[in-house]
Amino acid sequence: MFKVRMPKAYRHPSLDYRLRTSRTIREAENLHEAKKAAVPTPLVYFVDMDNATLVMEYVQGPRVKEILDKLNHQDRVKLCEGIGMHIGQLHRASLIHGDLTTSNMIRLEEDKVVLIDFGLSFHSHNEEDMGVDLHLMKRVLDSTHHFHSQEAMMAILSGYEKIVGNQSSLRVLKKVREIECRGRYSGERL
């Protein structure tokens, strides 16, 4: 599969080039790093930096976004726990995904999830960055999967905790809460 970062007509050409090339490199590097951390990701075969193009393995399956609301309770919890574990594995390896949405997760047949789209990923030991990662996940569940968002988030967090441990998980969750309160429209704060 070819992943081509197309030029965006609305962006200034130099900014556009900078973003497309840097994200292509990041994505190639961190797809590999994630794999080392035991997170399933597509294999990268070739990087063409100048054309902001990655050649990588094609992953067959629906995006989690399309199926999350259709699953029964048990399957949904199982799927979300798996997602949480993968996020935990990334964070344990100091890797921040940067764009944890349900569009960026592909579900394989045997209840396995592959994470994709590492263009905004980066290395960090910082709990703040891990908090932002989980905050985005929560935001996406609230805005696009609102009927199951609480259930899904709980399952993700339980999977996350299994990997990073109770202490780290609590510290990151405290950060998530802090980040939420920074937002202007946080429901809980009102």
Binding site: V132, S143, H146
Partner: peptide
């Protein structure tokens, strides 16, 4: 006072993205 991206769903305006 605002920098937010929002959409209406299930009786609420849901924030898709905003400034941190």
């Amino acid at each position: 006072g605002h920098s937010a991206i929002t959409a209406f769903a299930a009786r609420r305006w849901r924030i898709c993205g905003e400034t941190e």
